[in-house]
Simulated scan of single mutants.
Amino acid sequence: MTLSIPGSSSKVTLLPKDARSLAGGLPPAAPGTLFVLGVNGGMSVAPDAGFRVVFGRNDPAVHVCVGADDPHVSREHGYITYERSGWVVDNVGRMPICFPGPRLLLSGHREHLPVAYTPLFIVGPRREHLLEVRVAGRASTNPASAYELNTIDPDAHSLSPVEKLVLVCLSQRYLRSDPQPQPLTWGQVASELAEVRPTEEWGVRRLGHVVGKVRRRLSPITPGLLEEEVPPPVGNALNHNLITALLVSGTLTPADLALLEG
């Protein structure tokens, strides 16, 4: 069965496959408008459209496709509906949906979406699949200016050149889209940076200090970056959470890998 789009095109609009990431901003939209983007495009839905957005891997039978080639993702994995309290996502699939933080939305559970950009990951045993969601805030007074904002990322965090170099090296497996990325070890980072910038000292203690300083600076606005916030064993969790936050905010992008070319 192929799902249909309501007749009111002004309230439900399709987003093309090549639509830019929702992390970079939105075109002019009424407050409360929902934007959902997957691998093959997506849609925007006005809060009063009375429309339920269905997502999953069965591309012909859902509104937004995610994990099309991964059988661990359910054919109809979840849906997003508008209620009086706002937009709500329901997980009806087998695998959990990971919210930033991270918070897991288990099968049969539901969660309210904030008026913000929210990257959702369907977590499988081998891969994670991104579903971008964003709820528009207050309307822009200058639509033309709002459209221009799509070319920048207002949520990016400020990093010094040394911080960015170290973090790009630490997170390069994520930036290269490895199927099961993990942060590099401090020893691996030290070895690589010694080749990239051999005239500088890249000891393990310095690397830990640089990354720890960024984690502490972002911890007031990003949970999961301090040791007391993560249940033991901590392992790579702190660096993983930091890298995820930097990727989600657009602070680090695959283009930054050029820094490792020396």
Score class of each variant (00 low, 15 high):
Met1Tyr: 13
Ser4Asp: 03
Ile5His: 08
Ile5Gly: 03
Pro6Ile: 10
Ser8His: 13
Lys11Trp: 00
Lys11Gly: 05
Pro16Gly: 09
Lys17Phe: 04
Arg20Asn: 13
Ser21Pro: 03
Leu22Asp: 08
Ala23Gly: 11
Gly25Tyr: 01
Leu26Arg: 07
Leu26Asp: 11
Pro27His: 00
Pro31Tyr: 03
Gly32Asn: 04
Leu34Thr: 10
Phe35Leu: 08
Val36Gly: 02
Met43Asp: 07
Ser44Cys: 06
Ala46Thr: 05
Asp48Glu: 15
Gly50Ile: 14
Phe55Asp: 04
Arg57Phe: 02
Asn58Val: 05
Asn58Leu: 07
Asn58Gln: 12
Pro60Arg: 07
Ala61Trp: 11
Val62Lys: 13
Val62Glu: 14
Val64Met: 04
Val66Glu: 09
Asp69Ala: 10
Asp70Ala: 02
His72Phe: 09
Ile80Lys: 02
Ile80Asn: 10
Glu83Trp: 00
Ser85Gln: 13
Gly86Cys: 12
Val89Leu: 10
Val92Lys: 00
Met95Ile: 11
Met95Arg: 07
Met95Trp: 09
Met95Glu: 14
Pro96Asp: 04
Leu105Phe: 07
Leu105Cys: 05
Ser107Met: 02
Ser107Phe: 05
His112Tyr: 10
Leu113Lys: 05
Leu113His: 09
Tyr117His: 13
Phe121Met: 08
Pro125Cys: 08
Glu128Phe: 10
His129Leu: 08
His129Trp: 11
Leu130Pro: 06
Leu130Ser: 00
Leu131Ser: 05
Glu132Ser: 07
Glu132Ala: 03
Val135Met: 09
Ala136Trp: 00
Gly137Asp: 11
Ser140Leu: 04
Thr141Ser: 09
Asn142Pro: 05
Glu148Gln: 12
Leu149Lys: 03
Asn150Thr: 10
Ile152Asn: 04
Ile152Val: 12
Asp153Asn: 15
Ser160Trp: 01
Ser171Gly: 15
Gln172Phe: 04
Arg173Asn: 14
Tyr174Cys: 09
Leu175Ser: 00
Asp178Lys: 14
Pro179Gly: 11
Pro179Ser: 15
Pro181Asp: 02
Gln182Ala: 14
Leu184Lys: 07
Gln188Met: 07
Leu193His: 06
Glu201Thr: 15
Gly203Arg: 10
Val204Cys: 02
Arg205Pro: 10
Arg206Ala: 10
Arg206Gly: 10
Gly208Ser: 15
His209Met: 06
His209Trp: 00
Lys213Ser: 12
Arg216Phe: 05
Ser219Pro: 08
Thr222Arg: 14
Glu228Val: 14
Glu229His: 06
Val230Gln: 13
Val230Asp: 14
Pro232Met: 01
Val234Asp: 05
Gly235Trp: 02
Ala237Lys: 15
Asn239Leu: 06
His240Ile: 08
Asn241Asp: 01
Leu242Gly: 06
Ile243Leu: 02
Ile243Thr: 15
Ile243Asn: 00
Thr244Lys: 12
Ser249Lys: 11
Thr251Glu: 14
Thr251Lys: 03
Thr253Val: 15
Pro254Val: 15
Ala255Arg: 04
Ala258Ile: 13
Leu260Gly: 11
